[in-house]
Amino acid sequence: MTQAFGARLHDAMAAHGPLCVGIDPHRGLVESWGLSYDVAGLERFALTCVEAFAGRVAAVKPQSAFFEVFGSRGLAVLERVLTDLHEAGTLTILDAKRGDIGSTMGAYAEAYLGPDAVAPPDALTVSPYLGYESLRPAIDLAEQTGRGLFVLALTSNPEGATVQHAVRDGRSVAASVVEGAAADNAPARGRTELGSIGLVIGATVGRAVQDLGLDLVSAATPVLAPGFGAQGGTVDSLASTFGAARGQVLAASSREILAAGPDPSRLVARTVEVAEALRPA
């Protein structure tokens, strides 16, 4: 990559609006499109999404699990999705939430971010709950290859608070993750582009960002905010949740947009409508 992921994300958000569309081919959604829940149906679903989203949004986020369920044939479809979107010039964020330690984390990093990766995304979601520094192999490799990470920080599922809101030495676990990303993004601070180590913070976490004292503004840290649309996130809630950091937020929507399928023209229309709704914010 000739340009860091954060800079490319900044440009994509400026060009297309701060929207990331998910490709989540779970059984109910695939079948609601009138497709069979098998590899053929998966491929038809996924490639229809590529046709509709490529060149129209800042980023596309395939959920790896819904491809992995079909084994190697499903992974082949995922690789094609990532490759086709790359060739169309659309950023990809692979939602795989990998996290481990030592050489195992290093192997995950090579698989998704390395120079020899088969179909590498532009960014990968990762879990820091073995300690933020356990992600160091992926952080370092992402920097070397011009790719990015989105680190789970504050999720909207009820179970997440038991870990993420826990306090040690006067700060929450979520705050320690935010601080780790901020330190890794320090070289980008003061410039116009974003850093390449982002955070995952749910669009529906409400006041948790403020209540936990998370400083998202002082660092050039991008935020991926899943839950926009069908899960309750709105333009107004994004503004109230993220405040002055709103300009760093890439809202992620899946079901609200995918429900417009299988007609590609309806998918395109819904995608453009949501992207434009987000742009003024």
Rank of each mutant, 00 (worst) to 15 (best):
Q3Y: 00
G6A: 10
A7H: 13
H10P: 05
H10V: 00
A12M: 10
M13F: 09
A15R: 14
I23Y: 06
D24W: 08
H26M: 08
G28W: 06
G28I: 01
L29Q: 04
S32L: 04
W33C: 05
V39P: 01
L42Y: 07
A46D: 02
L47Q: 09
T48H: 11
T48M: 04
E51I: 05
F53V: 03
A54I: 11
A58K: 05
K61L: 11
S64F: 04
F66E: 07
F70M: 13
S72W: 09
V77E: 00
V77S: 02
E79C: 09
E79W: 08
R80T: 15
T83Q: 13
D84I: 00
E87K: 10
T92M: 04
D95E: 09
K97S: 01
K97H: 05
R98N: 02
S103D: 09
S103M: 09
A107M: 08
Y108S: 10
A109N: 04
E110F: 06
A111I: 00
A111N: 05
A117S: 14
V118Y: 03
V118D: 10
L124Q: 12
S127A: 12
S127I: 11
G131Q: 11
S134T: 15
S134Q: 07
L135F: 05
L135I: 14
R136D: 15
R136P: 05
P137N: 10
D140L: 13
A142P: 07
G146F: 02
G146H: 00
G148F: 07
L149V: 10
L152K: 03
L152D: 14
L154H: 03
P158F: 07
E159V: 11
A161G: 08
T162L: 13
V163Q: 03
Q164A: 03
Q164R: 14
A166V: 03
G170D: 00
S172R: 01
S172Q: 06
V173H: 07
A174Q: 04
S176C: 01
V177R: 14
V178Y: 00
V178A: 11
A183C: 07
P187N: 04
A188R: 06
R189E: 13
R189Q: 15
G190F: 00
R191Y: 13
R191M: 05
V200C: 12
T204Y: 08
G206Q: 02
V209R: 02
Q210W: 02
D211A: 14
G213P: 05
L214S: 06
L216P: 12
A219V: 10
A220Q: 12
T221W: 01
P222V: 02
A225F: 01
G229V: 02
T234C: 11
S237D: 12
T241Q: 06
A244N: 09
A244P: 14
R246K: 13
G247Y: 01
Q248E: 03
V249K: 01
L250R: 06
A251F: 06
A251H: 12
S254R: 10
S254M: 08
R255W: 00
E256S: 14
E256V: 11
L258V: 03
A259C: 04
A259L: 09
D263F: 03
S265E: 15
A269K: 13
A269Q: 08
R270S: 13
